[in-house]
Design a protein around this nucleic acid. Structure first.
Lengths: 246, 246
DNA sequence: AACGGTGTGCCGTATTACGGCACAGAAGTT
DNA sequence: AACTTCTGTGCCGTAATACGGCACACCGTT
């Protein structure tokens, strides 16, 4: 079903570049204009995209994808189980709490509770974080099989900021440290002004599949706050894991 | 492209019933099993669904849809423009703030800031609310052209709770009242235990396309809190509208 | 062993998507 | 005003491919 694959590619491209028209899409995707247009028309019929504003020639995505996507979580009722604990966490820390799941080589944000403090580290649901340069990613990675870790290291660790860990040996040491202390930290390794403290969540399977984190502007991340957040988040992750059958 | 339409129907159905297998899907959708299976395989290849847990026979959606859906907003940078005002609103009210956009006959939740209070009125992004039984919906409706209102009334107003307004004349009066006071309220008209106060947002066009609301458990919705929330939310909506070029 | 329930695979037909090409219009340029 | 260069749209013959009936393999219950 080449057909469907094309249409989905078009859909994704519309999402990232919206509002966008036939011509540009065909150029970017390397597909004939006619094919792109058929895809657009069909996606429109199906209600996944709609013409933008007054113009009938540029398209934007509708909320259909959101509606479908909100069912994405871990396999079990991960989100439902997690939310109460996330609330408790936010109450204790008064910082932004993230719930992420692993998907391939990324951690994807699927739930979020915001701090009431003015400075936010805003990220929209569905955003993805690199495994090696986020507290969530490292927390999951640390408890993953050696083979998974090895594969990731072999692919190379892209640098995002000047604190990103890109050296395989340093990363192995870091993961060891994470296992020892029970939580992972991130000091501006992905975005230089945001830090976080995370702990992995395990379900019925051995491998962790999700992670909880406390996210803060780097300016609020001190050594003592870090250990406080670490204790809180790893406790929450532990009880959540237990509830999921670990 | 029947093909694509089928695949998308399958995708939506997987989302609402996950985890689910070929047989049940084919029954529910009234499609031949072979067709459903081809669709599933293709959606899997494209990374929109994946086999659930250990089983290879049941499917769940991945976060791909979330990733696409997070780009859905109003046409302009509605979300980005709204978030700072939503924060201000939450600071002043300490209640859950919703940003919804109109999509057909529904209001769809596209952004949310939670209260720090223990009682949640939890709703996930992408959820939709009826136009006639939500503060957000009524706020938008009140400033919509008479023709739009007429069409909705003609279709009939489904009852959700015992306070739902189902009588066309009462609804017209309600909308008039909303126009007069500048904000809409909802006293358990959709879910009997949740109330809200909302104001419509207008962009460059005359017709409102979005709405901001303060959401509270009915137990916290008194006459005086209502007018306080009303003032706050309509002020926020007004400045947001202005920033969007109204 | 027969039954009802999974999910998978094959295959001939005919539907349908492909994609080149031509056209219509708008905006900017000379 | 003719020319260029973008848009987006529509047509249409060919060839690919999706359709969907059917048969099969499997599992558990009766």
């Amino acid at each position: 079903m080449q057909n469907v694959l094309n249409a989905l590619r078009v859909l994704e491209e519309v999402a990232t570049r919206q509002p966008i028209g036939v011509g540009e899409l065909s150029r970017v995707l390397g597909m004939p204009k006619s094919s792109v247009q058929r895809a657009l028309r069909t996606l429109g019929e199906a209600g996944w995209i709609r013409p933008a504003g007054g113009e009938v020639t540029r398209w934007v995505v509708t909320t259909k994808a959101l509606d479908v996507g909100r069912h994405a979580s871990g396999d079990l009722g991960l989100r439902d189980a997690a939310v109460p604990l996330m609330e408790e966490l936010r109450r204790r820390t008064d910082e932004t709490i993230h719930l992420t799941v692993r998907e391939g080589n990324k951690m994807v944000l699927i739930e979020r509770l915001e701090t009431s403090k003015p400075v936010r580290t805003s990220m929209s649901l569905g955003h993805s974080l690199p495994l090696h340069a986020s507290a969530n990613g490292k927390a999951v990675l640390a408890h993953s099989p050696a083979e998974v870790i090895g594969r990731l290291l072999a692919e190379g660790l892209p640098r995002y900021t000047d604190t990103t860990i890109t050296d395989p040996d340093r990363m192995l040491a870091e993961l060891e440290r994470i296992r020892a202390q029970g939580y992972a930290t991130n000091r501006g390794e992905w975005r230089s002004d945001v830090g976080s403290v995370a702990a992995a969540i395990r379900g019925a399977t051995k491998e962790p599949i999700a992670s909880l984190s406390v996210n803060i502007p780097m300016t609020r991340l001190t050594d003592e706050s870090e250990s406080f957040f670490g204790a809180a988040v790893s406790e929450a992750a532990k009880t959540l894991s237990a509830r999921l059958g670990h």
